[in-house]
Simulated assay, not measured.
Amino acid sequence: MITEARGPRGSQQPYSTGYEQLLEMVRYEGAYPTRERADEAVRLVLAGLGRQLTGDERVDLARCLPLEAARVLTVQIPGSQPLTGWDFAKDIATRSGASLATTRWDIGAVFTAVSAQAGPLLITRILHRLPTGWALLFGRAGLTPAA
């Protein structure tokens, strides 16, 4: 199980209202039975995104998120090798020990909520910064320009 994205819940301060709202969005989108399961998905997926996203897009996304989510994103050191969307999903599945189907579900639920908070313009900028295959993870068509 991944541990760098999670800490012991008992020792933390209560979550902010913004983070509680984010968790509720993820819980709804992912049809998770508990807020704790939604929190686990948020931390896992945002930690993975934090290892991939750099530059102004990383900073701007962190500004759009509640503090707890922004910390999970920004505490990660970006990897030296950018991953395609498919490789990102496989990496998250490997780190979590979950199936690819479950991982893809978690990614979709979290990215839907993140997209709602960040807005379409920032998500478009993020997608232009990342390698191929990420648009589908954000619920968008992965279209390429015609030659």
Rank of each mutant, 00 (worst) to 15 (best):
Arg104Gly: 05
Thr124Tyr: 07
Gly10Ala: 14
Trp134Asp: 14
Phe111Leu: 00
Leu53Asn: 02
Ser16Pro: 04
Pro145Asn: 08
Leu100Val: 12
Gly133Asp: 02
Gln12Cys: 10
Gln13His: 08
Phe111Pro: 00
His128Ser: 09
Leu65Gln: 00
Arg95Glu: 11
Ala62Asp: 00
Val72Thr: 14
Thr84Phe: 03
Glu40His: 14
Gly48Asn: 06
Met1Pro: 10
Arg129Met: 06
Glu40Gln: 13
Gln13Val: 08
Ser16Tyr: 06
Gly55Asn: 04
Gly79Ser: 14
Ala141Arg: 09
Ile126Lys: 02
Leu49Met: 13
Glu4Ile: 12
Gly142Arg: 01
Gly85Tyr: 02
Gln117Arg: 12
Glu4Phe: 15
Arg51Pro: 14
Gly142Glu: 15
Phe111Ala: 00
Cys64Gly: 02
Arg71Lys: 13
Ile77Tyr: 02
Trp86Glu: 14
Leu83Tyr: 07
Gly133Leu: 03
Gly108Pro: 11
Leu122Trp: 00
Ala135Met: 03
Leu73Met: 04
Ala5Gly: 08
Ile126Pro: 01
Ala109Cys: 08
Leu122Thr: 01
Ala93Thr: 06
Thr103Phe: 03
Leu137Asn: 03
Gly79Arg: 11
Ala135Arg: 09
Gln13Tyr: 08
Trp134Cys: 10
Arg129Tyr: 03
Gly48Cys: 07
Trp105Cys: 02
Gly10Ile: 12
Leu46Asn: 03
Gly133Asn: 06
Ser80Val: 11
Ala109Gly: 08
Gly48Met: 01
Gly7Ile: 11
Pro131Ile: 15
Gly18Trp: 03
Arg129Trp: 01
Pro78Thr: 04
Leu46Met: 05
Leu73Tyr: 01
Leu121Ile: 03
Ala31Asn: 15
Glu4Met: 08
Ala93Asp: 05
Arg58Gln: 12
Ser115Glu: 06
Thr34Leu: 07
Leu136Val: 12
Arg104Asp: 10
Pro33Ala: 11
Gln21Met: 13
Asp87Lys: 10
Leu67Arg: 15
Leu143Trp: 05
Ala89Phe: 01
Leu61Asp: 04
Leu136Gly: 15
Lys90Glu: 15
Thr144Met: 10
Gln13Pro: 11
Gly50Ile: 07
Ala109Met: 00
Ala5Val: 07
Arg125Cys: 02
Leu44Ala: 07
Thr84Pro: 01
Met1Arg: 12
Thr3Phe: 13
Gln81Trp: 04
Ser115Asn: 05
Ser80Glu: 15
Leu136Cys: 08
Leu44Asp: 07
